[in-house]
Protein backbone atom coordinates (compact mmCIF):
# COMPACT_ATOMS: atom_id res chain seq x y z
CA UNK A 1 0.00 0.00 0.00
CA UNK A 2 1.38 3.40 -0.96
CA UNK A 3 -0.19 6.02 1.25
CA UNK A 4 -0.75 9.58 0.13
CA UNK A 5 -1.58 12.86 1.74
CA UNK A 6 -5.14 12.80 2.94
CA UNK A 7 -5.69 16.20 1.34
CA UNK A 8 -4.61 14.76 -2.00
CA UNK A 9 -7.17 11.98 -1.63
CA UNK A 10 -9.84 14.48 -0.62
CA UNK A 11 -9.14 16.61 -3.69
CA UNK A 12 -9.27 13.52 -5.85
CA UNK A 13 -12.67 12.56 -4.41
CA UNK A 14 -14.06 16.02 -5.05
CA UNK A 15 -12.84 15.88 -8.64
CA UNK A 16 -14.46 12.48 -9.13
CA UNK A 17 -17.76 13.72 -7.71
CA UNK A 18 -17.71 16.66 -10.11
CA UNK A 19 -17.09 14.29 -13.02
CA UNK A 20 -19.98 12.07 -11.90
CA UNK A 21 -22.40 14.99 -11.77
CA UNK A 22 -21.26 16.43 -15.09
CA UNK A 23 -21.24 13.09 -16.90
CA UNK A 24 -24.73 12.09 -15.80
CA UNK A 25 -26.18 15.53 -16.40
CA UNK A 26 -24.79 15.53 -19.92
CA UNK A 27 -26.08 11.99 -20.55
CA UNK A 28 -29.53 12.96 -19.19
CA UNK A 29 -29.73 9.51 -17.60
CA UNK A 30 -27.70 7.35 -15.26
CA UNK A 31 -27.20 6.55 -11.60
CA UNK A 32 -25.77 9.38 -9.46
CA UNK A 33 -26.69 8.09 -5.99
CA UNK A 34 -24.76 4.83 -5.98
CA UNK A 35 -21.86 6.43 -7.84
CA UNK A 36 -21.42 9.18 -5.26
CA UNK A 37 -21.58 6.76 -2.33
CA UNK A 38 -18.65 4.74 -3.69
CA UNK A 39 -16.19 7.57 -4.39
CA UNK A 40 -13.93 7.23 -1.33
CA UNK A 41 -13.70 3.45 -1.58
CA UNK A 42 -12.57 3.57 -5.20
CA UNK A 43 -10.17 6.45 -4.48
CA UNK A 44 -8.42 4.52 -1.69
CA UNK A 45 -8.34 1.35 -3.79
CA UNK A 46 -6.99 2.93 -6.95
CA UNK A 47 -4.63 5.48 -5.36
CA UNK A 48 -3.34 3.49 -2.41
CA UNK A 49 -4.31 -0.14 -2.10
CA UNK A 50 -4.25 -1.79 -5.49
CA UNK A 51 -1.10 -2.63 -7.38
CA UNK A 52 -1.88 -1.65 -10.92
CA UNK A 53 -0.39 0.20 -13.86
CA UNK A 54 -2.57 2.10 -16.31
CA UNK A 55 0.27 1.95 -18.84
CA UNK A 56 0.18 -1.83 -18.66
CA UNK A 57 -3.43 -2.75 -17.96
CA UNK A 58 -2.92 -6.41 -18.84
CA UNK A 59 -0.01 -6.81 -16.37
CA UNK A 60 -0.42 -10.36 -15.09
CA UNK A 61 0.21 -9.56 -11.45
CA UNK A 62 -2.07 -6.55 -11.23
CA UNK A 63 -4.73 -6.38 -8.56
CA UNK A 64 -8.18 -6.41 -10.06
CA UNK A 65 -11.35 -4.47 -9.37
CA UNK A 66 -14.85 -5.53 -10.38
CA UNK A 67 -17.84 -3.27 -10.04
CA UNK A 68 -20.59 -5.77 -9.31
CA UNK A 69 -23.11 -2.93 -9.10
CA UNK A 70 -22.35 -1.97 -12.68
CA UNK A 71 -24.92 0.83 -12.85
CA UNK A 72 -22.55 2.93 -10.70
CA UNK A 73 -20.01 2.95 -13.54
CA UNK A 74 -19.61 6.76 -13.62
CA UNK A 75 -17.51 6.52 -10.45
CA UNK A 76 -15.40 3.77 -12.00
CA UNK A 77 -15.00 5.53 -15.34
CA UNK A 78 -13.99 8.80 -13.68
CA UNK A 79 -11.54 7.06 -11.35
CA UNK A 80 -9.96 4.99 -14.11
CA UNK A 81 -9.75 8.02 -16.38
CA UNK A 82 -8.02 10.10 -13.69
CA UNK A 83 -5.61 7.19 -13.19
CA UNK A 84 -4.69 7.32 -16.87
CA UNK A 85 -6.58 4.33 -18.26
CA UNK A 86 -8.96 6.21 -20.52
CA UNK A 87 -9.37 9.79 -21.80
CA UNK A 88 -10.69 12.26 -19.19
CA UNK A 89 -11.95 14.59 -21.91
CA UNK A 90 -14.35 11.94 -23.22
CA UNK A 91 -16.05 11.31 -19.87
CA UNK A 92 -18.94 13.50 -20.93
CA UNK A 93 -19.77 11.15 -23.81
CA UNK A 94 -21.21 8.77 -21.20
CA UNK A 95 -24.10 6.68 -22.56
CA UNK A 96 -23.88 8.16 -26.05
CA UNK A 97 -23.73 5.92 -29.08
CA UNK A 98 -20.16 4.87 -29.83
CA UNK A 99 -18.78 6.15 -26.51
CA UNK A 100 -16.33 3.91 -24.67
CA UNK A 101 -18.23 5.00 -21.56
CA UNK A 102 -21.24 2.71 -21.99
CA UNK A 103 -24.30 2.76 -19.72
CA UNK A 104 -22.88 -0.23 -17.84
CA UNK A 105 -19.22 -1.40 -17.82
CA UNK A 106 -18.53 -3.03 -21.18
CA UNK A 107 -15.20 -4.74 -21.88
CA UNK A 108 -15.79 -4.56 -25.62
CA UNK A 109 -15.24 -0.80 -25.30
CA UNK A 110 -12.73 -0.65 -22.41
CA UNK A 111 -10.58 -3.81 -22.32
CA UNK A 112 -9.01 -2.62 -19.04
CA UNK A 113 -12.30 -3.32 -17.27
CA UNK A 114 -12.06 -6.63 -15.47
CA UNK A 115 -15.70 -7.59 -16.12
CA UNK A 116 -18.78 -6.48 -18.02
CA UNK A 117 -21.45 -6.03 -15.38
CA UNK A 118 -24.95 -4.61 -15.13
CA UNK A 119 -26.95 -7.66 -14.20
CA UNK A 120 -26.67 -7.64 -10.42
CA UNK A 121 -25.40 -10.56 -8.38
CA UNK A 122 -22.64 -12.02 -10.53
CA UNK A 123 -19.51 -9.99 -9.75
CA UNK A 124 -18.58 -11.85 -6.57
CA UNK A 125 -18.55 -15.21 -8.35
CA UNK A 126 -16.36 -13.82 -11.12
CA UNK A 127 -13.99 -12.35 -8.53
CA UNK A 128 -13.77 -15.75 -6.86
CA UNK A 129 -12.79 -17.35 -10.15
CA UNK A 130 -10.02 -14.80 -10.55
CA UNK A 131 -8.88 -15.43 -6.97
CA UNK A 132 -8.78 -19.16 -7.55
CA UNK A 133 -6.74 -18.75 -10.74
CA UNK A 134 -4.27 -16.46 -8.96
CA UNK A 135 -3.82 -18.96 -6.17
CA UNK A 136 -3.29 -21.82 -8.62
CA UNK A 137 -0.62 -19.80 -10.42
CA UNK A 138 1.11 -18.53 -7.29
CA UNK A 139 0.22 -15.06 -8.54
CA UNK A 140 0.12 -12.38 -5.80
CA UNK A 141 -2.78 -10.62 -7.57
CA UNK A 142 -5.67 -9.70 -5.28
CA UNK A 143 -9.24 -9.13 -6.47
CA UNK A 144 -11.60 -6.52 -5.09
CA UNK A 145 -15.29 -6.54 -5.89
CA UNK A 146 -17.83 -3.90 -4.97
CA UNK A 147 -21.40 -5.03 -4.34
CA UNK A 148 -24.54 -3.00 -3.77
CA UNK A 149 -26.60 -3.65 -0.66
CA UNK A 150 -29.60 -4.28 -2.90
CA UNK A 151 -27.44 -6.47 -5.09
CA UNK A 152 -26.63 -8.88 -2.28
CA UNK A 153 -30.29 -9.88 -2.13
CA UNK A 154 -29.46 -12.08 -5.12
CA UNK A 155 -29.12 -15.71 -4.07
CA UNK A 156 -25.98 -16.16 -6.16
CA UNK A 157 -24.13 -13.82 -3.80
CA UNK A 158 -24.64 -16.26 -0.95
CA UNK A 159 -23.73 -19.28 -3.04
CA UNK A 160 -20.51 -17.43 -3.83
CA UNK A 161 -20.00 -16.42 -0.20
CA UNK A 162 -20.19 -20.05 0.89
CA UNK A 163 -17.75 -21.09 -1.80
CA UNK A 164 -15.14 -18.44 -1.00
CA UNK A 165 -14.85 -19.31 2.68
CA UNK A 166 -15.00 -23.05 2.03
CA UNK A 167 -12.04 -22.62 -0.30
CA UNK A 168 -10.27 -20.29 2.18
CA UNK A 169 -9.82 -17.64 -0.48
CA UNK A 170 -7.96 -14.85 1.26
CA UNK A 171 -6.96 -13.03 -1.93
CA UNK A 172 -10.40 -11.62 -2.61
CA UNK A 173 -12.13 -8.76 -0.83
CA UNK A 174 -15.81 -7.98 -1.17
CA UNK A 175 -16.94 -4.45 -0.41
CA UNK A 176 -20.61 -3.86 0.26
CA UNK A 177 -21.45 -0.24 -0.52
CA UNK A 178 -23.92 -0.19 2.34
CA UNK A 179 -25.84 2.97 1.50
CA UNK A 180 -29.15 1.50 2.74
CA UNK A 181 -31.05 2.42 -0.44
CA UNK A 182 -31.81 0.36 -3.55
CA UNK A 183 -33.89 1.20 -6.63
CA UNK A 184 -37.43 1.40 -5.32
CA UNK A 185 -36.59 2.80 -1.90
CA UNK A 186 -34.92 1.94 1.40
CA UNK A 187 -33.46 -1.53 1.77
CA UNK A 188 -35.21 -2.01 5.12
CA UNK A 189 -38.61 -1.54 3.43
CA UNK A 190 -37.87 -3.80 0.46
CA UNK A 191 -35.82 -6.71 1.81
CA UNK A 192 -34.02 -6.07 5.09
CA UNK A 193 -30.45 -7.37 5.27
CA UNK A 194 -29.72 -6.94 8.97
CA UNK A 195 -28.02 -8.40 10.88
CA UNK A 196 -25.68 -8.16 7.91
CA UNK A 197 -22.31 -8.57 9.62
CA UNK A 198 -23.61 -11.71 11.33
CA UNK A 199 -24.77 -13.11 8.01
CA UNK A 200 -21.32 -12.77 6.44
CA UNK A 201 -19.64 -14.05 9.59
CA UNK A 202 -21.85 -17.11 9.63
CA UNK A 203 -20.84 -17.70 6.02
CA UNK A 204 -17.22 -17.87 7.18
CA UNK A 205 -16.01 -14.41 6.23
CA UNK A 206 -13.89 -11.97 8.15
CA UNK A 207 -16.04 -8.86 8.51
CA UNK A 208 -14.78 -5.28 8.76
CA UNK A 209 -17.28 -2.49 9.45
CA UNK A 210 -16.13 0.98 8.43
CA UNK A 211 -17.38 4.43 7.57
CA UNK A 212 -17.15 4.31 3.79
CA UNK A 213 -16.46 8.03 3.54
CA UNK A 214 -13.63 8.05 6.09
CA UNK A 215 -10.43 7.73 4.08
CA UNK A 216 -8.31 6.69 7.06
CA UNK A 217 -10.84 4.08 8.12
CA UNK A 218 -10.92 2.67 4.59
CA UNK A 219 -7.14 2.53 4.47
CA UNK A 220 -7.11 0.61 7.78
CA UNK A 221 -9.89 -1.71 6.61
CA UNK A 222 -8.04 -2.74 3.46
CA UNK A 223 -4.83 -3.28 5.45
CA UNK A 224 -6.76 -5.51 7.82
CA UNK A 225 -8.19 -7.43 4.86
CA UNK A 226 -4.73 -8.01 3.43
CA UNK A 227 -3.47 -9.22 6.80
CA UNK A 228 -6.35 -11.66 7.20
CA UNK A 229 -5.27 -15.14 6.14
CA UNK A 230 -7.25 -18.30 5.52
CA UNK A 231 -10.59 -16.64 4.87
CA UNK A 232 -12.07 -13.97 2.63
CA UNK A 233 -12.80 -10.49 3.97
CA UNK A 234 -15.89 -8.41 3.43
CA UNK A 235 -15.84 -4.69 4.10
CA UNK A 236 -19.22 -3.32 5.06
CA UNK A 237 -18.67 0.25 3.93
CA UNK A 238 -21.35 2.31 5.62
CA UNK A 239 -22.09 5.08 3.17
CA UNK A 240 -24.63 7.69 2.22
CA UNK A 241 -26.28 7.37 -1.15
CA UNK A 242 -25.74 10.62 -3.06
CA UNK A 243 -22.90 11.63 -0.71
CA UNK A 244 -21.52 15.12 -1.27
CA UNK A 245 -24.58 16.71 -2.86
CA UNK A 246 -27.03 17.86 -0.19
CA UNK A 247 -30.23 17.29 -2.13
CA UNK A 248 -29.14 13.86 -3.36
CA UNK A 249 -28.00 12.54 0.00
CA UNK A 250 -30.24 9.75 1.29
CA UNK A 251 -32.72 10.53 -1.45
CA UNK A 252 -33.98 7.40 -3.27
CA UNK A 253 -35.11 9.62 -6.14
CA UNK A 254 -31.52 10.00 -7.27
CA UNK A 255 -30.85 6.30 -7.59
CA UNK A 256 -31.42 6.40 -11.31
CA UNK A 257 -32.28 9.96 -12.22
CA UNK A 258 -30.03 12.52 -13.86
CA UNK A 259 -29.81 15.99 -12.36
CA UNK A 260 -31.29 18.84 -14.37
CA UNK A 261 -29.00 21.61 -15.58
CA UNK A 262 -30.00 23.70 -12.54
CA UNK A 263 -29.46 20.83 -10.14
CA UNK A 264 -26.11 20.19 -11.79
CA UNK A 265 -25.02 23.79 -11.17
CA UNK A 266 -26.18 23.61 -7.57
CA UNK A 267 -24.32 20.35 -7.07
CA UNK A 268 -21.11 21.67 -8.62
CA UNK A 269 -21.27 24.72 -6.36
CA UNK A 270 -21.42 22.42 -3.34
CA UNK A 271 -18.47 20.47 -4.73
CA UNK A 272 -16.37 23.56 -5.52
Amino acid sequence: MQTRDISELQDFCKKIRRHIIEMITEAKSGHPGGSLSAVETLAVLYLEVMRHDSKNPQWKERDRFILGKGHACPVLYATMAECGYTPVDQLKTLRKMGSIYQGHPDRRFIPALEASTGSLGQGLSVAIGMGLAARMDGNPSRTYVMLGDGEIQEGQIWEAAMFASFHKLDNIVAIVDYNKIQLDGFVKDIMELEPLADKWRSFGWHVVDADGHDLLALRRAFAEAEATKGKPTVLLAHTIKGKGVSFMENNPKFHGMAPTKDECEKALKELA
Binding site: Q153, Q182, L183, M191
Partner: peptide, 25 residues
Protein backbone atom coordinates in the same frame (compact mmCIF):
# COMPACT_ATOMS: atom_id res chain seq x y z
CA UNK B 1 -37.06 -3.93 -7.03
CA UNK B 2 -38.21 -2.49 -10.32
CA UNK B 3 -41.82 -1.58 -9.53
CA UNK B 4 -41.52 1.98 -10.81
CA UNK B 5 -40.03 0.75 -14.06
CA UNK B 6 -42.36 -2.17 -14.72
CA UNK B 7 -45.23 0.06 -13.56
CA UNK B 8 -46.56 -2.40 -11.01
CA UNK B 9 -46.14 0.38 -8.40
CA UNK B 10 -49.71 1.49 -9.17
CA UNK B 11 -50.96 -1.94 -8.16
CA UNK B 12 -48.75 -1.81 -5.06
CA UNK B 13 -50.27 1.51 -4.02
CA UNK B 14 -53.83 0.30 -4.29
CA UNK B 15 -53.35 -3.28 -3.09
CA UNK B 16 -50.41 -3.34 -0.67
CA UNK B 17 -51.62 -6.62 0.82
CA UNK B 18 -51.48 -8.35 -2.56
CA UNK B 19 -48.13 -6.96 -3.59
CA UNK B 20 -44.89 -8.74 -2.67
CA UNK B 21 -41.52 -7.17 -3.13
CA UNK B 22 -38.97 -9.96 -3.42
CA UNK B 23 -35.87 -7.80 -3.38
CA UNK B 24 -33.40 -8.17 -6.22
CA UNK B 25 -33.91 -11.93 -6.46
Amino acid sequence: DLSKSTMVHWFAQEFPGRFFTCGIA
